[in-house]
């Protein structure tokens, strides 16, 4: 949850990358019981690779990013609200199979991810948002269905690495053509998912 809040508040590329990486590495452990060693290992390798790709892509970028439309704090408020709703929903749900933290953390990451994915104007934040959204959804799945199997963990690991690779490529491409991280396109929103 701290990673999600930091990712939407940060205007520093290193902080954004670090917060995303921390969230990716911590998420597999939000399950009770923990996933099988094979699935857990594959997932951690995918998360480590994703963080590495993001980190190397933004090394040549300027350290500062522009703020998000609501300034960062507004977005963080939404993220914290999603976490609170997740805690409350878990408390009143009798069907959930996962730990209490799963829905709260999942909701926070999902809101942070979709927020970045919809409103960010640079490859790094878009990638960060995509990764947080995927990870948040996986935590919601933990809440709904219990500890994920090796197949889901492997799928998450491959998707995480692939999305991070795409974000890294987008960042490098943008830096190469515009000498800055901003894509220069108009702000997207949820009506224009393409």
């Amino acid at each position: 949850m701290a990673g999600a809040v930091l990712a939407v508040m940060a205007t520093d590329t290193r902080l954004t990358t670090g917060a995303t990486w921390a969230a990716l590495l911590a998420a597999p452990f939000v399950a009770d019981p923990l996933p099988q060693p094979l699935g857990l290992g594959v997932r951690l390798v995918g998360a480590a690779l994703a963080g590495y790709l993001l980190w190397t892509s933004m090394r040549q970028a300027a350290p500062l990013l522009g703020p998000l439309p609501l300034g960062g704090r507004g977005e963080a408020t939404f993220v914290l609200a999603a976490a609170a709703i997740g805690f409350l929903a878990d408390a009143v749900t009798s069907e959930a199979l996962g730990p209490t933290a799963a829905l709260a953390a999942g909701g926070a990451l999902l809101v942070a991810g979709l927020d970045l994915l919809a409103f960010a104007d640079d490859g790094l934040r878009l990638g960060s948002g995509a990764l947080l959204a995927l990870t948040g959804t996986s935590l919601v799945l933990v809440e709904l269905g219990g500890t994920p199997g090796a197949g889901l963990e492997a799928g998450l690991a491959v998707a995480t690495a692939a999305v991070a690779g795409a974000a890294a490529w987008l960042t490098v491409t943008t830096l190469g053509s515009r000498r800055e991280l901003r894509l220069g396109a108009r702000h997207g929103d949820l009506r224009d998912i393409g």
């Binding site: 994915l117 995927l134 987008l170 491409t173 220069g184 998912i193 393409g194």
Partner: peptide, 14 residues
């Protein structure tokens, strides 16, 4: 220059 189609590589699948 990167255009919206590059962004859609990330947004659409997610």
């Amino acid at each position: 220059r990167p255009g919206p189609e590059l962004v859609s590589v990330l947004r659409l699948p997610i």
